[in-house]
Design a protein around this nucleic acid. Structure first.
Lengths: 331, 331
DNA sequence: AAAGCTTCTGTGAACGTGCACAGTAGGACG
DNA sequence: CGTCCTACTGTGCACGTTCACAGAAGCTTT
């Protein structure tokens, strides 16, 4: 019991392969009579086009590969990914493209990705959380179009991306602290080799100017534990702080624990602001005032860029989307 | 500048297509001389086998499709998925299989999945959180092998799966409460049409017997808000409860909020136990005592089953893995 | 009536691979 | 010396599709 081919459909409809193919590929020049006959034949036989055969001649694969560069352990800690995957599947499906996933955590992985992509097995590449200076970026050049969700920093040849305006978000939070009358405002940043690490600190400094001294700034690595450590450190260095802007909700959860351990009340003694508006923001006590990124729109725009490039656009502009302050109880 | 074909490699190595093909497919009967010549030719030309052409003749696609049946909004709320995806990519890559993702949230999605799979575009199917009575299951019958991560309940034709022993986990937590001397132990379950909803309640009842009265049981839908509601409800019905087993960490976070609102101290007045050992378990205050599922091993076993079936195994047995009690501060 | 459109249809070739088969050379064995 | 076996190699075909092309039929224009 073999699967029906385009031949079988053509025979059942009393036309030739060519006509069926034209109908399938949206060509004009198919008579109404042929059209209905073929459509009936397709549903009768349960025909589904064979993508392998199609790829062979069209030189297109009908798939886009999403490359996850995150070190394996912390993959998906970020709710960002789930939204991106969901939106990607959805938008690609509309164009009859499928999403294949690959990891690029170590050298072996990266090699595999390069072979796959350069071997012509994907029509497009969707980079996620690729780090600056990742050799993957160079290796991928010259292949199918690639975009990134979130900026890739430290590159001369810019790769198109859509991202939230991290700097704006940081300004919003810092300004909110100022408007609350807080005077000694500290910050816990992310790693300084990531866009989020750098830009959120920039926004913070934009507002505070020279008041953003080194003494009031500590660095974390996005993990909850690092947030706790950084907060403890800050309290030692500057016991009189009355607000702290933490560059991610998860680190902010850690900071809350450290503040509690030190006997500070939140927000009475110290106001705490997070970033991301992730699910932990509402499970902490008190719930976190934070900055919401338009995750769905970021994902949509990223895919829009990629699809445009796949369709042959020469060049696309990066997209930067505004963030939003979400006020809860921690500030 | 076309990509090199097997022809080009053969020519460069001074042999025929057949010999190159044999080397590529691990056939014996390739002379050492030919072997080195071909290997050099491959690396010189940068040859990568064309999967489409291969699929066409082998009738295999080299890909496995992961079907996410979760309603879209709550997709990936569960850290389970990230582990599964990671492990799946990894184990499939070892066999040179790629992972493609599809959604099966609504009727249109489901139709697409069925067309894709029945159209012969996947060598295997990896079902995730498929609900009982999902029409997808019937539609997929007769196609390539399918397995599920987590049991699919209420089916006559059982589909192979690997899962954590939910019932055991629930017993562990309940027994722990008993050992602490708690007397009025309540439970907040998941939806009763999911395996986790049913089996965690069963384990609870296993230990408490007739003491597990309806008055002490409330139902949630896995969301934090539902946990909060259920807890409030329980406190009204039975103000004297001194412990509550919540079927997921996220719902437990909601329950903690309700308890705090009611002025109960945790764990002094009421002990709280969660389930999953997800990331929220450590961001709540106090951190949750919970049940850890061996996520990585569940994923590995699920993939092992699938790969065995793809390799032609007639039948595989479901795998049930033990859970583990993780004691933190909430109980 | 001839020529030229427009609309539609069928056909052969090509995409790059694996597989079955035929064939060759060399050694072992009777 | 002939036969058989082993180790290896080359070749034709098929997989299912799209695309370019040639051509037919009907209509309009010259």
């Amino acid at each position: 019991m073999k699967r029906p081919t385009i031949h079988d459909v053509a025979a059942a409809a009393g036309v030739s392969r060519g006509t069926v193919s034209r109908l399938l590929n949206g060509d004009k020049y198919v008579s109404p009579a042929a059209r209905v006959a073929i459509e009936r034949a397709i549903s009768e036989t349960g025909y589904v086009v064979n993508r392998a055969a199609r790829s062979l001649v069209t030189q297109r694969t009908g798939s886009v590969v999403m490359v996850l560069s995150e070190p394996h352990e912390k993959l998906f800690e970020d709710p960002n990914y789930s939204t991106l995957i969901r939106v990607a599947i959805r938008m690609l499906a509309e164009r009859d493209l499928s999403l294949v996933m690959m990891l690029a955590g170590d050298e072996g992985d990266r090699e595999r990705v390069v072979r796959y992509v350069r071997g012509g097995h994907a029509d497009g590449v969707l980079l996620v959380s690729t780090h600056a200076g990742d050799p993957l970026l160079d290796a991928l050049g010259g292949g199918p179009p690639a975009v990134s969700c979130g900026p890739v920093i430290g590159r001369e040849t810019v790769i198109p991306y859509a991202a939230a305006d991290d700097r704006l978000g940081a300004r919003q939070m810092t300004e909110y602290f100022v408007s609350l009358g807080r005077r000694r405002i500290a910050m816990i940043t992310g790693p300084m080799d990531t866009p989020g690490g750098i830009q959120r600190l920039e926004g913070f400094a934009d507002v505070l100017g020279r008041k953003a001294t080194k003494r009031l700034i500590a660095h974390g690595d996005w993990t909850q534990a690092s947030g706790e450590r950084a907060m403890t450190e800050l309290l030692e260095r500057a016991p009189d702080i009355d607000a702290v802007f933490v560059a991610s909700d998860l680190m902010a959860a850690g900071a809350l624990a450290a503040l509690r351990a030190a006997g500070r009340r939140v927000p009475d003694d110290v106001a705490v602001g997070g970033f991301d508006d992730s699910s932990v923001a509402v499970s902490t006590h008190p719930p976190l005032t934070t900055i919401r990124q338009p995750l769905a729109e970021m994902a949509q725009q990223t895919l829009r860029l990629l699809l445009a490039l796949i369709d042959g656009a020469e060049h696309v502009e990066p997209v930067i989307l505004p963030t939003e302050l979400v006020i809860r109880e921690s500030a």
